[in-house]
Simulated scan of single mutants.
Amino acid sequence: MVNHYFFAEQPMAFRNLTYTHLTFEEVRKHMLTFMRKEPMGNYKLMIGTDSHVYQNETIFITGLVIQRVGKGAWACYRKIKYPEPIRNLHQKISYETSLTEEVASLFDESLKNEFIHIVLPHVYKGSSFTMEGHLDIGKGKQNKTREFVTEMVARIEAHGIEAKIKPESLVASSYANRYTK
């Protein structure tokens, strides 16, 4: 039986190859600094979660990436170890989506506006800022998650961000996946 309160009680702590403990406020500052270095650019803020079930636990990784398309990125991730294997596929995918939604919800309107105001003076020269929620699910015939696509995409889009599924959900299916192993 999954303890639904477990996830709500987990700290909002992030890490990457340089930093071992970042608060969300520190993540925000790093992302804004990254964008301010080159305000003329096409920026994508991408959030996605992947998980891996082990014998005695399930590891969830939520990746958070700000990409300057064609010119680099700054990334970090949040790791949660759930103390049981979650073998029900719908439940596991639903928790992945919930963790992505939780981090996405931290980007309220005032924070989104901070990002937008960096590129705003350069919009007419082609600059942009978009936000995406990446889901580790796909529509392919061989993909066991295809029956959950409509439900999970609707959940992400309810937050006012664009949902991406495989093969376009790189933060969930590639970046986060790397740290679940």
Rank of each mutant, 00 (worst) to 15 (best):
M1S: 11
A8S: 05
E9I: 01
E9L: 03
M12T: 03
A13F: 14
F14S: 03
R15C: 10
L17N: 15
T18Y: 15
T20K: 11
V27N: 04
M31G: 03
T33K: 07
F34R: 12
F34H: 08
K37W: 02
Y43E: 05
L45S: 00
G48T: 04
S51A: 13
Y54C: 09
Q55C: 11
Q55G: 08
N56R: 12
E57G: 00
T58R: 08
I59A: 07
I61V: 09
I61S: 02
T62P: 00
I66R: 01
Q67I: 01
V69G: 02
W74Y: 14
A75Q: 15
Y77M: 03
K79E: 08
K79S: 01
I86F: 08
H90Y: 14
Y95W: 13
T97L: 09
S98H: 15
S98L: 15
E102C: 05
L111M: 04
L111E: 03
K112S: 10
K112L: 14
H117I: 06
L120W: 00
P121G: 06
V123A: 13
M131L: 07
I137P: 08
G138Q: 06
G138L: 04
G140L: 03
K141H: 08
Q142V: 13
Q142K: 15
R146M: 05
E147G: 03
V149Y: 04
T150V: 14
H159G: 01
A163F: 01
K164E: 05
N177S: 14
T180Q: 07
K181P: 10
